[in-house]
Design a protein around this nucleic acid. Structure first.
Length: 484
RNA sequence: GGUGGGGUGGCCGAGUGGUGAGGCAGCGGCCUGCAAAGCCGUAUACGCGGGUUCGAUUCCCGUCCCCACCUCCA
């Protein structure tokens, strides 16, 4: 079996063959850290986390780079707004916060969200502001090649010359002439309205900390440039995979591709894009007010259920959230965990993956089909368990654990801390009550036994009787959805 | 106007030219002192209209609707 991936650029599923045997270089767009992460960000992170895990499970060495774009218009705007006299500070946006502090604060918020969901840290996470000199070099190459020009209006801007690059639009298969006229707020010195800024001249009022001396005057980087500069710096002028959300396809990735190719770099060999997250069919957006944050999700369900939900649809599909989604995911996760708890001896040292699972993952990461295999194994394992075939059950359990590992479900931290002192104390108390209940049952005092169980249930402790005695677990959070 | 992706049973969500993934919810049964968990069984489906075919949800044509991108967006 060979891994096949859908390449957005060619619009077809292609066999994946890395540039260098056994090694995969991957760049995927992280966040422009201008606000708190929303569900779409973490969905994307989970999607690429699964890709990375699958590549590694397939034997590849993966060098994964995810950028942090820590300077852009919005970051500066939000910071500037915090100094305004009529600024209303809240817990997300304190007053008088410098742009770099704001960016760094949100960068950490992203890390917290990723970590909570068991998203592996990339190999490296470069920041845009740390790569200004690399950007200079790239701009200079583009100017030398005749594909970029300093604005003639003295603004200090440098633009990419879209008309000079005949392949412009190749990523999204659009022709420049067919594109809707973007009434750019300020055409300034552009030769074509679609020309985009590589470098933005410093404007009065912009913070001095957000300006660098360049050969074209003081200023700051344009949006798309940092990814081209950083991807090629760390992965080479040609690398295997470039990823990101579908909404980055245009203009962000189109522009990246244009500027890198025009400068002479081969750039990415495969382009992968994950689908959007919707709320009952509509794209989540702040203006509609139909957003749900990762924080809110984590307050409604365990991280593992949130991760399951975010990863369960095919990565290219739209992922629809609606009230109840997380409860369903929670039920599915508990089914898996319940089986493992009953049957798994030791964690498998080596991954034991059913062929059907491998085939599903190799087929453009068909996670829904892979999950079907996982659940089939759970069912088969439960059947074996019911028939007393412990060896068979253990085999199925090893498979299930392996599949859960590959999908990243095994690495999601438990917020309640199963190993915490609180948990241990609770366990002592519950065990004591269960001993009493067992004694009551032995005396056929079922009223007493049920009273104990009811008491525990009320406290949120679920009791399950098994041939080996009673087991207990903490009930899933069943907080209702507060949205909609 | 341009580009791309969709419309699958109560919900989510794969997939396929012909013996109807998987999850969640429902119903019946087994198990249980009763439950819970689990197992077994079970119903409801492929937007609409044509066409190709022995046979289409799957291919073709038409049509309706939805979504995304073309402006900052994972």
């Amino acid at each position: 079996m060979v891994l096949r991936l859908y390449d957005t650029k060619t619009a077809e599923i292609r066999d994946f063959t890395p540039l260098h045997e056994g090694r995969v270089s991957l760049y995927y767009c992280g966040a422009t850290v201008q606000g708190k992460p929303h569900v779409g960000h973490v969905r994307s992170a989970v999607a690429f986390d699964i890709l990375i895990r699958w590549l590694r499970a397939s034997g590849y060495d993966v060098l994964a780079v995810r950028n942090v774009t820590d300077i852009d218009d919005k970051i500066l705007e939000k910071s500037a707004a915090s100094y305004s006299p009529d600024f209303r500070a809240d817990q997300d946006y304190p007053a008088e916060e410098p742009w770099f502090a704001l960016a760094y604060r949100f960068e950490q918020a992203f890390h917290a969200a990723y970590d909570a969901l068991g998203v592996l840290r990339p190999s490296y996470e470069p920041r845009a502001t740390g790569h200004i000199t690399e950007m200079f070099a790239l701009i200079q190459r583009l100017i030398d090649a005749g594909h970029a020009y300093p604005a003639p209006d003295g603004s200090g801007d440098v633009y990419f010359d879209v008309r000079s690059w005949q392949n412009y639009g190749e990523l999204t298969r659009q022709r420049v002439e067919d594109m809707q006229d973007a009434p750019d707020a300020d055409p300034r010195g552009k030769r074509d309205p679609r020309d985009f800024a590589l470098w933005k001249g410093h404007k009065e009022g912009d913070p001095e900390t957000a300006a660098w001396d360049s050969p074209w005057g003081r200023g700051r980087p344009g949006w798309h440039l940092e990814c081209s500069a950083m991807a090629t710096k760390y992965l080479g002028e040609q690398f295997d995979i470039h990823g990101g959300g579908l909404d980055l396809r245009f203009p962000h990735h189109e522009n990246e591709l244009a500027q890198s190719r025009a400068a002479g770099d081969d750039f990415a060999r495969y382009w992968l894009h994950n689908g959007m997250v919707t709320y009952q069919g509509q794209k989540m957006s702040k203006s509609i007010g139909n957003t749900i944050s990762p924080e809110e999700m984590l307050s409604q369900a365990r991280p593992k259920a949130v991760r399951y939900f975010l990863g369960q649809a095919h990565y290219r599909s739209q992922l629809d959230y609606r009230p109840g989604s997380l409860q369903e995911a929670e039920a599915a996760v508990e089914r898996i965990e319940g089986f493992l708890a009953k049957s798994l001896g030791e964690q498998p040292v080596q991954l034991q993956l059913p062929e059907a699972f491998r085939a599903a993952m190799d087929d453009d990461l068909n996670v829904p089909a892979a999950l079907a295999v996982l659940h089939e194994s759970v069912r088969a394992g439960n059947t074996a368990l019911a028939q007393g075939q412990k060896t068979v059950a253990a085999e199925r359990a090893a498979e299930v654990a392996s599949m859960a590992q590959v999908l990243g479900l095994a690495d999601v931290p438990e917020p309640d801390g199963a190993g915490s002192a609180e948990h241990a104390a609770l366990g002592t108390l519950v065990d004591h009550l269960l001993t009493e209940r067992t004694a009551a049952k032995a005396e056929k005092d079922y009223a007493r036994a049920d009273a104990i169980r009811d008491q525990l249930t009320t406290a949120g402790v679920i009791i399950e009787d098994t041939p080996e005695g009673a087991r207990w677990s903490i009930a899933a959070q069943t907080k209702g959805d507060t949205h909609g």
